[in-house]
Every structure is written in structure tokens, then in C-alpha cells.
Design a protein around this nucleic acid. Structure first.
Lengths: 208, 208
DNA sequence: ACGACTCTTGACCATTTGATCAAGAATTAA
DNA sequence: TTAATTCTTGATCAAATGGTCAAGAGTCGT
């Protein structure tokens, strides 16, 4: 009986190589055209493989989609996980926002893919949202709450501060077309970091 | 020669009625499934007309899409247009944010439709972004700049403050699935207004 | 070199879907 | 009522697309 890649125990050199090729191409195409707007053939052309060959590595189009989505989720949790309760809150939040913006500029396709998935009901990542993401936000909300109680920052709804950081930073990836149209060009990544931190964090600083 | 609705000078009672039915249904479906994810038949079923009948009123699927998109654009400009330079800046910005959030909760489909359009390259609204939207933002950025120069609020990059307001408010429509998954339920619209205004505007207030 | 397994693809299929059209039903103005 | 116009739809088409398959090409351990 011929083994299919999915059921094989050990991955071949060629398997690793081609799956990687496919997922890279798929990220590009899915993030640009959405799930339904993407054809398997588009991905195939982009990575230089034939359509049946793609479907040899991933049985269904949906399998490609979930695989590429899965690969980006870890990337999403990472920066928030690093929020350290023992450091200065403004410094920590500044670092977090800057890390998020770095991600936004380095991997805008990942942001767009995720945005599209949520926008259309998150049918493939609902467990992720209700599980790991919810838990992580709860944990980090506690961190922010502890900063408030220690008088290190002014009172704020922790979860909504996190939402605000997410939405503003990802806005520059997801809505880049609009941002560039309105500004008349790409904003500088470095200037943006200062500007965004300013808008989001200045209200948290204790003034005396 | 039979007249097609598009070329007729005066619209019939039935024309007005059915076009409205179609566009209402189309907004729902397009905002949920995206452009490619939507079939003409889905819209037809939703509004109780036959598919060929839809295509009698709108020749192509794309015409339905642009029509429903067009109808929402005015809605988008409205609240920002009301920003009045002669009033107190914090009050004005608070009013703007609350109006935006009201829109978000009243018409989340409109927000999602727009988000989806931008996310996928804004191919149908590029002229809108580079024209009316850009102009309006420029005008209102001047208003904000004048507040800064008058010492009424602390210095801020006006365009990016506007972006921040857009992204945060629309986040609660576009990413509602994520917000609700993380919070474990729908946030209260009224509480949200206070929270969001707080996060976005507290940093602008002059402290003495 | 050989045999077993893995990889690749041209040809093909079934379904979906945007769009057309002719013919009939409903509406409207006279 | 009548005739012109507008509205409606069943039937149908062509193209796009997800997915299959058998047969051949390539790879690898021995």
C-alpha cells in the first residue's frame, strides 16, 4: 500500500522541502485573495509545482489553509507571552508594541491571513481563540492589573488595552492600502513605533 | 428596444423596492463570506428573488458588490466630517469615538464589508481612498493640529490618531468573534465607549 | 544493479457558478 | 380593454475549479 505523506511516520527530504515551498506560497496567495478567492492552481504556479502534486502533499485545499494558518498562530502568541510583570510597565508595553509593529512590517501577509480568518467567522481557529489565546490574555491581563494596583500605571481595562494594541498595530498591515492612500506613501517603521507607543501609552503614565 | 434598469431615466416603484431588497441582502452575504465567497444565488435566496432576476437589476455580480459598497462609503465619512474645530477637543474626539462605536454596533456588517475590501487590496474603492477620504483626513488632521498649537491637547500625529481611532473602534466589529472568544461574551456597548475613549484620549489631556 | 518506495503529472471528472435568453406574467399608461 | 413596457424565471451554457487516477519518472537503501 502506497504511503501518503500525511500518514508517514518520518518525513522525506523532498517532503519537507516541498511542503515548505507550498506553505510559503499559500501564505502569500491566501493572504491576498482570501480562502475562497484562492485557487489551488494559483498556489501551484507560485511555488512551481503542479496542481496534482500539491494535492499529493495536502489532500484538500482546506488542508493547505489550516496548515499555513497553524504555522502563523505561534508567531502571534510569542510577543505577548514575553510581557514581564517584574519590569517597568511602560518599558514592557513599549517593547511589546514595538515587537508587534516589527512583526507587522516583517510579515504583513501573516497578519492579513489572520485578519481574514477572524473576519469571516474564525471557523478554523475557534479552538485557538477560546483556548490558548483566551488563557494568555487572561494571564497578561492579570499582569497589567497588578501594575495598576501597584500604582505603576493609571487604571485601565487590561483586556481592552490589549485589544487596542492589537488593533492599532495590525491596522498598519491589514489596512496598509488605506494607510498609504491617505498618507500618500508608506509610513516609516521607526517613526511609527514612537507615534503608536505615544498614542497608546501616554495615557497610562503617572503624572505627578 | 427593451430598456434595462441601468439605462432607464426614471426608476420604477418595483425597481426601487427590489434594488433595495437586493442590496440589503447583498450586504449581509458579502460581509459574511467576502466577494468570492458569495454566490449570486445566496443573495437571491436571502432576498427571495430568483437569480436571473437579480441579474436583471444588476448585470454582473460585481455590479451588486460595487453598489452595496458605494452605499456604505457615505456612512463612513459622516462621523469624521462632524469634527468641529471650535469645540473642546476632548469633547469632540469623545463624541467622534462614541459615534464610531455606535456605528460599529449598529452596522457591523458594513464595517466588515469595508474591512474585507481594504484587506484584499481595495480594488473597488481605491479612488475613494485617494480622493474624498484622503482629503477629509487632511482637513481633520489640520483641525487636530490647530488644537495642539493652541495648547488644548498634548502633541500628537493627527493622521495616526485618526488611524488609531478607526482601528480600535472597527476592531470591535471586524474582530468581534475574537473579542467575544477572549472575553467570554459580548462586551457592553456603553461600557466600551468609556473604556475606549479612556485608552485613546487620556494621553491627550493636558495635565497641570 | 535492483527492487521498493516516493514523487510527479497529463488527462479527466463532477460540481459550482456567473451569465444568457426566450417566453410568459404582471404592470402601467392610454 | 388594449397595447406597450416592465418584470420574472426555467432552462441552459461555458468557464472555472476542487479533486482523482493511473502510469511513468525519480530516489534510495542494500
Amino acid at each position: 500500500m502506497p504511503k501518503t505523506p500525511e500518514t508517514s511516520t518520518q518525513k522525506t527530504r523532498i517532503q519537507n522541502q516541498n511542503e515548505s515551498l507550498i506553505l510559503d506560497a499559500a501564505l502569500d496567495v491566501f493572504s491576498t485573495y482570501g480562502y475562497r478567492g484562492t485557487t489551488v492552481d494559483q498556489i501551484a504556479v507560485k511555488c512551481g509545482l503542479s496542481k496534482p502534486n500539491l494535492l499529493y502533499y495536502f489532500r484538500r485545499k482546506e488542508d493547505i489553509y489550516t496548515a499555513v494558518l497553524q504555522r502563523t498562530l505561534a508567531l502571534w502568541l510569542e510577543p505577548l507571552q514575553a510581557l514581564n510583570p517584574d519590569n517597568d510597565p511602560i518599558e514592557e508595553l513599549t517593547r511589546y508594541i514595538k515587537a508587534k509593529l516589527d512583526l507587522t512590517f516583517a510579515r504583513p501577509e501573516a497578519s492579513k491571513l489572520f485578519a481574514n480568518e477572524i473576519l469571516h467567522g474564525a471557523t478554523h481557529v475557534a479552538p485557538f481563540l477560546k483556548g490558548p489565546l483566551k488563557d494568555l490574555v487572561a494571564t497578561k491581563a492579570d499582569v497589567i492589573r497588578s501594575w495598576v494596583q501597584a500604582g505603576q500605571i493609571r487604571p485601565v481595562e487590561p483586556a481592552h488595552l490589549i485589544f487596542a494594541i492589537w488593533s492599532v498595530t495590525q491596522h498598519y498591515a491589514d489596512f496598509s492600502v488605506q494607510v498609504e492612500a491617505v498618507l500618500g506613501g508608506k509610513p516609516s517603521a521607526e517613526a511609527l513605533k514612537t507615534t503608536v507607543c505615544d498614542i497608546l501609552l501616554r495615557g497610562l503614565k503617572i503624572t505627578r
